[in-house]
Design a protein around this nucleic acid. Structure first.
Lengths: 155, 155
DNA sequence: TCTTAAATGACAATTAATTGTCATTTTGAC
DNA sequence: GTCAAAATGACAATTAATTGTCATTTAAGA
């Protein structure tokens, strides 16, 4: 005897469609990101980590890994490369003696600005002739989904 | 002298926010997918490929790779595993003598249904108390973005 | 304070993913 | 139909990502 299927609702099916599109779009964003040089061989998290440090301030490697739900070793490796590139530095963490904080250097600010500019150009191209209100509603929906998943994973 | 920055519009900034949220949400979806057993060690494309074959019919390995913008060797490896698992079979391709078509087996249909059920359950949970029309608008927006990126990459 | 569990950094081992190569087949231009 | 360029499958080589381990440090409770 087959297991009972889940009862479907229009909203649930829309969320499923949204999930499918988000995953498919992620791969295309990665491909386009490679093309415009914001997803380097250093991995796709480079700009994201620069942005996280810029927007949220200095953080430790494990903090970033926990936030993104990736292994801390992955972030550590990225951090080592960023250090070598001179875009971050490790500074003392008042809250933790061993675990240093990653902080943007002036060069990191510059590199972040350059990469951001390419992403801005792409975004402006993609935004042509789109309805702003509808776009912002879509951003809200995906942000909600993001937060719900975070809550789900954290419980 | 610094390079001229891109002029920003509200719509362009909303698209940039959308891109950021899509990428962040992808990682959380992957983490949650592992938790509920739809993203196995076999790689995250397993369910997606089953779905593609179910919805769009039999396809070759290179076709799928081109569609997803991943190396064909990645899809080949996944295909070999799916063959070993008995969820697909390779059938003759009327349009190409060497390049066989991947087709779902009855077991593939069953496995797809099982995994889909878990995704449906997650989707229904995430959809609770959400506005259907707004959700569908968001799906449309992300679908448009998906298609625009595809056109961009294909030109 | 004391004690135990969890977190951290460093590094090794393993596994996965990507890139490279090449013989053969197919496609498309002419 | 012929020929050159591109596509395909098979497999090897390389590179990247993940997992495992362990000594040490920190955090949380009793």
């Amino acid at each position: 005897m087959a297991k009972q299927s889940v009862d479907r609702t229009p909203a649930g099916q829309a969320i499923e469609d949204l999930i499918i599109e988000i995953v498919a779009t992620f791969f295309l964003l990665r491909a386009e990101g490679m093309r415009i040089g914001v997803v380097s061989s250093s991995g796709e998290g480079y700009w994201s980590v620069l942005r996280l440090l810029k927007v949220n301030g200095a953080q430790t490697v494990p903090q970033i890994a926990r936030y993104r739900y990736v292994p801390r070793q992955s972030v550590q490796k990225l951090a080592n490369e960023m250090l070598k590139d001179g875009v971050i530095e490790f500074v003392n963490n008042p809250a933790h003696r061993r675990s240093k904080l990653m902080r943007l250097t002036p060069k990191g600010e510059t590199v972040f600005a350059e990469l951001s500019d390419r992403i801005a150009l792409l975004s402006e191209t993609l935004a042509a002739q789109k309805n702003v209100d509808q776009l912002q509603d879509a951003v809200d929906i995906v942000k909600q989904l993001h937060q719900q998943l975070r809550d789900m994973l954290n419980q």
